[in-house]
């Protein structure tokens, strides 16, 4: 494009056909950026947009996720009968996490759920802001500093009975190990009284981790936890409780419910964030979802009958 422009030279048209020049003695006011945390996503929650988005989620995103990530969904029974709105708080390892989670959410939640996305990354260009607001119902969240605008928007969304997906780590893990949860989710829940549903997502780092070029199709798992009521807690304790709950959900996936319960009872649940001070042994031992279930080892394609026959 730049090359083309270079060939054609700069085409300028005289005013009024071209842009007016700004008089040098008039103070220039820089318009407030409408991007980043200031991007207005209200349009993406209109009924007509929601309708199109739900069709795309059900008929495009979901099949695509099934092909790329073969999700196994656990714990949806824990969501039965809970009052909306809720905050789904999950560990975060991949750009795949959001479409994966949206596509496996039970029907009661799926089509009225917004997603908290980094304002600096997903809303820094107009086209990106439009795409993510439209496709995922994303709302901009400031990750680097406490922003009143982000908080107010999230509060407004929850008060309008929209559910919210947030990743309390504030970004994707660079190494497959979880990171410490930030307090934003807890503060939001305490302000609105919304229930938090802890969610563990496994396997997405292997499919499309940070710094990976392209997909490595594989198996993933989403394990929904028992809802946490924020009442009578403070942000710090609630954040700790949330992180423990996600750790326990991960333990349930990598071992089983009863072992995880016993370890949780003995306060010895493995910490998903424990990377052993970046040791290679910790990386070596890091549980991978694809190692857990027998069915994930099965061929992704049906075996032809003659393959198993002796030659």
């Amino acid at each position: 494009m730049a090359k083309m422009r270079g060939l054609l030279g700069k085409i300028t048209m005289p005013f009024p056909l071209g842009r007016p020049t700004w008089p040098a003695n008039v103070e220039r006011t820089i318009p407030k950026s409408k991007l980043g945390a200031n991007y207005d996503t209200e349009w993406a929650r209109r009924y007509s947009v929601r309708l199109v988005r739900s069709l795309i989620t059900d008929y495009v995103t979901k099949p695509a996720i099934n092909i790329v990530a073969s999700p196994k969904v656990l714990g949806t029974d824990r969501l039965k009968g809970i009052d909306v709105p809720v905050i789904f708080a999950a560990n975060h390892a991949s750009h795949l996490d959001t479409p994966l989670l949206l596509s496996v959410l039970p029907d009661d939640f799926r089509h009225k759920t917004a997603v908290g996305a980094g304002a600096d990354y997903f809303f820094d260009r107009k086209y990106k802001a439009v795409i993510w607001s439209f496709l995922l119902g994303a709302i901009p969240i400031e990750r680097t500093r406490v922003s009143r605008r982000s908080t107010d928007l999230a509060l407004e969304i929850l008060r309008d009975d929209w559910n919210l997906i947030l990743f309390p780590e504030g970004g994707r893990t660079p190494d497959g190990f979880a990171r410490e949860f930030k307090g934003g989710v807890a503060q939001l829940a305490l302000k609105t009284g919304s229930t938090i549903v802890p969610v563990f997502i496994g396997g997405t780092y292997e499919v499309l981790g940070k710094n990976k070029k392209g997909f490595s199709p594989g198996s993933t798992v989403v394990n929904f936890g028992r809802p946490i009521s924020p009442s009578g807690s403070n942000p710090r304790d609630l954040t700790k409780e949330l992180q423990s709950a996600v750790n326990r959900l991960g333990d349930e996936v990598y071992s089983d419910y009863w072992d995880a319960a016993l370890r949780s009872g003995a306060s010895s649940t493995p910490d998903l964030a424990d990377n052993g001070d970046n040791s290679w042994i910790a990386e070596w031992n890091r549980p991978r979802f694809s190692d857990t279930f027998e069915d994930s080892k099965k061929s992704r394609w049906p075996r032809l009958p003659f393959i198993d026959k002796p030659l």
Partner: peptide, 9 residues
């Protein structure tokens, strides 16, 4: 008993 309990026990 639920899937979780079944799969564990």
């Amino acid at each position: 008993v639920g899937d979780r309990v079944y799969d564990s026990f």
